[in-house]
């Protein structure tokens, strides 16, 4: 009897769910990213997708991501998305080898695909219509130009993941923007190591005027190192990506600026683009750059509020 009840319960739940899923002729967009649920960066992007779902009455967004950084599971999620025949598919492409076949499969099945966050270099080859994200080289270049405007002539890139191509691109862009070849401080993300490496570099190179930090993890230890040597203001600091500590450091003038790739847009815009493509066949002719957005002393206070609300 109890068994019967549970079966009936499951069936009733099923009917309710399927009724909810196919209420009207809605535009159904599936977004598959590599962002793990616990990532602070990605929860902002997911909020963008969720808000697009809420803002657009005729559009349903389903957001999917693997529980761990697992490209195989992600490829399988994309395969499943293709099998469910959505009106549009948005994917991030951190590993074109592992995900390429699944994405090409989606394109072959006639599903419009937009990529977001990572994959700007491979998107076109895979048949993706447009990429929404930050191009690393241009973001670095923007940072370099800003540093140049501050009068910097000798600087270093702080690279916390040697071999990560994206970080190399950021530093190469920085070199182009600055017009001078920067030194490279290679570390891990271990805060003690970062702090000591920065201290050692500044001791050895007293003429260094700026450190360009290539990710948010080593940013605060670098600030501590510079602060510990009493060089705040003399050695200008800037970083990629945001965190609470970084924003406060920018607000307090310990850092010049932080480069924000505005990942909320990376969650929101693909939904809008795919919806408009489905409705009217519209699609931008070039990739959509969501960054670099610069957080400086002027807007840091606002950004702190938006960050707390989950938009930055």
């Amino acid at each position: 009897m109890r068994k019967l009840a549970s079966v009936l319960g499951a069936a009733a739940l099923g009917v309710a769910l399927s009724a909810a899923a196919s209420a009207q002729e809605q535009i159904r967009i599936v977004m598959v990213t590599h962002g793990q649920a616990a990532s602070g960066f990605w929860s902002v992007a997911k909020k963008g997708a969720d808000d697009a779902d809420a803002d657009l009455a005729d559009t349903v967004v389903e957001y999917r991501s693997p529980e761990t950084f697992d490209m195989v599971t992600m490829a399988q999620l994309i395969e499943a998305a293709v099998a469910s025949k959505p009106d549009g598919l948005a994917v991030s492409i951190p590993d074109a080898d592992a995900l390429g076949a699944a994405i090409k499969g989606a394109v072959a099945a006639g599903i419009p695909v937009v990529s977001l966050n990572s994959g700007s270099d491979v998107a076109r080859d895979l048949g993706v219509m447009v990429h929404v994200g930050q191009t690393e080289f241009e973001a670095g270049e923007g940072g370099g130009e800003k540093m140049k405007a501050l009068g910097v002539t000798k600087a270093a890139c702080l690279n916390q993941e040697v071999g990560n191509v994206a970080l190399d691109l950021r530093c190469e862009g920085f070199e182009k923007g600055l017009g001078v070849k920067p030194d490279i401080i290679a570390t891990s993300i271990d805060p003690t190591e970062v702090k000591n490496a920065v201290t050692a570099y500044l001791t050895k190179n007293p003429d260094a005027q700026a450190i360009f930090i290539l990710g948010s993890d080593p940013a605060m230890p670098a600030v501590e190192a510079v602060e510990g040597m009493g060089l705040i203001g003399k050695v200008k600091l800037a970083t990629f990506d945001l965190s609470e500590g970084i924003l406060e450091a920018v607000r307090d003038g310990k850092m010049e600026f932080a480069i924000d790739q505005q990942q909320y847009l990376q969650g929101y815009l693909p939904v809008v683009l795919l919806r408009l493509y489905k409705k009217f066949g519209l699609m931008p002719g070039a990739d959509v750059l969501t960054g670099p957005g610069f957080v400086t002393k002027d807007n840091a206070a606002d950004v702190i509020a938006w960050s707390a609300a989950g938009y930055r």
Partner: peptide, 28 residues
């Protein structure tokens, strides 16, 4: 059988039991 019955009801028309859908979950 129970699981298949559940998804047949909940997700019957969603493409899960299309050829591609079946191969996908069989591969996993």
């Amino acid at each position: 059988v129970l699981v298949f019955a559940f998804f047949a009801v909940v997700a019957g028309g969603s493409g899960m039991f299309s050829l591609k859908g079946v191969i996908t979950f069989l591969e996993v």
